[in-house]
Design a protein around this nucleic acid. Structure first.
Lengths: 188, 188
DNA sequence: GTCTATACCTTGATAGAC
DNA sequence: GTCTATCAAGGTATAGAC
């Protein structure tokens, strides 16, 4: 195994950081998962320390999430429900970053800011536009920003419930969920 | 400091476990916060090890959350919006448990189950009842379970955004949020 | 019940041979 | 660029004096 060791280290680290968290991932485990003998510090020929590795992994994921348009365009059929399904895909695309953020919360306020901007703020912003593109119901018209916040919160809550509380609320599928949410926002 | 050392240890541990997570909390830090000299193992006269301490802390919090009715009754004025505000209080009452669950995710599937039942399932169940008590809108009547899941997800998403992504979505206050959510569910 | 002292292990990190 | 060897630091846990 030759030149791409740095890449193998980052790939191995991403998996381990998402699953156990950076704090619970010894460098030796990263070395082993990257095909190096553990405990011999070959890692340090590629990164200064664990913090530098974490930075590199997060930066790369942020760059990927920002430019990869795959999630945003799938499923979109012009309806709000279709848009919401696509948004769930986008959240899924941020899975790794969200997982790492939740491990590092309190320790990495700057990472929280970056994800907040990428996910929540951007989501509410786009949500407002999406809502105004439809014929919104009276409640939405009364306070479009609050309606977009409700929409975004519901999406995030649904995603996180599936991800961290073991199951989607009441076993409701993504299709049922997005259909009902879109109905509430547009059929009043 | 005499007989209540066990209590002081548990109180100190709860704070530290919530803030840094059990894995990042050395026993020495718990001893220090409980008023013992750190590193001398006085802790072990009271608990077998850190896992036993974590179990005791979680069990006590679960018991408290289940029986403490304080959160559930405040704010309730007969409207759905009022009920939702009270539900936000209940989520706030689960803050510590949620924080610990997020630190221990993957390691404590049984804890995830217990919180899932206490929070999500119970929330959807009560939510269905709340929705049927009102005159629900057509979208809600079409799929009450999905509507309750949307309601619950929105609440959880709003709470977690405030707690872990730094701010509520778009800076929307609890009052605006619950008013809009209730309006969407009942005014169609 | 708390303290002193200590043994052991895991992890982070470096020096230097190959 | 990887391996051998090695250390220092931090954390868990125990024995035994007080």
């Amino acid at each position: 195994m030759g030149r791409d060791t740095r890449e193998r280290i980052m790939a191995a680290a991403l998996t381990l950081f998402v699953e156990r968290g950076p704090g619970a991932t010894p460098i030796t485990a990263v070395e082993e998962a990257a095909g190096l003998l553990p405990g011999n510090g070959s890692f340090y020929r590629h990164f200064a320390n664990k913090a530098a590795l974490l930075d590199a992994v997060v930066d790369r994921e942020l760059a990927r999430a920002r430019k990869d348009p795959s999630a945003q365009v799938s499923h979109v059929d012009g309806t709000l429900a279709g848009q919401l399904l696509a948004d769930l895909d986008f959240l899924n695309d941020l899975r790794s970053l969200i997982a790492i953020l939740l491990w590092e919360r309190g320790r990495a306020p700057e990472l929280a800011d970056r994800i907040q901007r990428l996910m929540v703020d951007r989501g509410v912003e786009l949500g407002v536009a999406d809502l105004l593109a439809e014929t919104p119901c009276p409640t939405v018209r009364e306070d479009v920003t609050a309606a977009a916040a409700v929409m975004m919160s519901a999406m995030i809550g649904y995603f996180l419930s599936r991800e961290y509380f073991g199951a989607p609320p009441a076993g409701v599928t993504p299709e049922r969920f997005t259909t009902t949410l879109a109905g509430l926002l547009t059929r009043q």
